[in-house]
Design a protein around this nucleic acid. Structure first.
Lengths: 149, 149, 149, 149
DNA sequence: TTTT
DNA sequence: TTTT
């Protein structure tokens, strides 16, 4: 179909570290999920309540490598991409559907630190060295809080 | 969580007429799906191929009434809303998930004609006359209140 | 500055045919403006009124060539791009500012017909025939290549 | 015109504290500007360069009151709104144009501290105490009514 | 599973 | 005028 648009814009925090796979052909894929939330007033109780939505994000190739190196649990990110629903077979041979956001733009809104498999902060030296490397392409770290006003 | 954004922007065509339900409390809900597509070149064959994605749209209340009256199969619409994934139980008591776009803004990009139950094109005269009228204006939701999505 | 986003999404109709320039270095630039409008109720008179906003669009290179060939006065287009404000000197040597949308994505929402210099509707037959052809496909910037999502 | 869309999405930092005016009819308006930037490689020198764009933001009513209380110089914000160009007369009676983003949604991406008139960091004690409070939640406009932009 |  |  001609003349269509498919665009998703999200800002949210990662619930876990990304899962990164290096495919046999050398292509890299990263998956992670981010939470957004909204507050509303419960009609019955009059109380404020918060609803959290979780969004599955997929990134490919160069962007996946950046995610592998810099994006991790708890960080806030801006994600721009397309909605894609893919089908798969479950164990009972039912067709099931999963909707994901295939991101083609990602900006970190939290200060970046190199991601590690040991997310409990025991960085090996090689990762420390990454700290002094320039950031890859359009993706840059960002200071979110503690501004010196 | 503070500081999150959840926004989807789609332009696509309806595959079928919307399904509209009038709930017992008087609230109206409309569901429909729209297709977006993108073309890409198949790496192996060098051929152009088209991938179509289908998106489930939900609209509530006043916007649902407009959909009921004016939006139907084949029309192209602009939809703006939020990504929501809801869980439900299938017959085998498995938890399953469906992702939808809950729209809070909808603009018809095809000239509107009143929707009918006879979507097979037997328009009464008054509707034929509408064909020469200018396109219906942009539609906004009348309220943004505590919705139980 | 890291972590910034600059995005504009417009759907509107062209007021005039685009102006296209071929620069000495071979680069092509196209300029055109599109109108969006919104209706509101005048507080004093209770009357519905419509406000029209005009937006200056700039497209470069391959996208400008497509605009040159297919986009013309009256067509409805989807435009996605960045806000840019540039300064210039008027005749009295005052610094003045013009804000434009530099588009990197453009989709025709009106059935495309090849643009002509005779925009006053004296279409040669070959263009009339185009009227029955399916809408021209979505136009993407050059860098969107064969991705196997 | 029917079927139009006018949407701007920005993430950037405020260059100065907002200017807030309380109009005679009680309506509040806030103006501020935010910077976005992008980096690119200079074709001639091969050097990385950064271009900063400044965007004029206007917010009305309830949202302006929140800006008055919480948003200030240096903070990073998400802004969603409409592009509006208004004309005015300069001293030489030339018609000039200014383009602004009239925001209807604003989310602080920096931890909020109450704005003060003394923006030179002489916080009274009560405001220091506020520093330990959680970030203000996402801010929505309380109404979308007949605005005289 | 995140975040305030 | 911001930010890194």
């Amino acid at each position: 179909m001609a003349g269509s648009v498919n665009k998703v814009i999200l800002i949210g925090n990662l619930g876990k570290d990304p899962e990164v796979r290096h495919l046999e052909n050398g292509v890299v894929v990263a998956n992670f999920s981010i939470a957004t939330s909204e507050t509303f007033t419960d009609k019955n109780t009059g109380q404020k309540r918060e609803i959290t939505d979780w969004h599955n994000i997929v990134v490919w190739r160069g962007l996946a490598k950046v995610v592998e190196s810099y994006v991790k649990k708890g960080m806030k990110v801006y994600v721009e991409g397309k909605l894609k629903t893919r089908s798969w077979q479950d164990e009972q041979k039912n067709t099931r559907y999963t909707t994901e956001v295939v991101a083609d733009n990602l900006t970190m809104l939290t200060r970046a630190e190199p991601a590690t498999n040991q997310s409990e902060n025991q960085y090996p030296k090689s990762i420390e060295e990454n700290k002094s490397q320039p950031m890859t392409q359009s993706i840059q770290p960002e200071e979110e809080d503690d501004l010196p006003f």
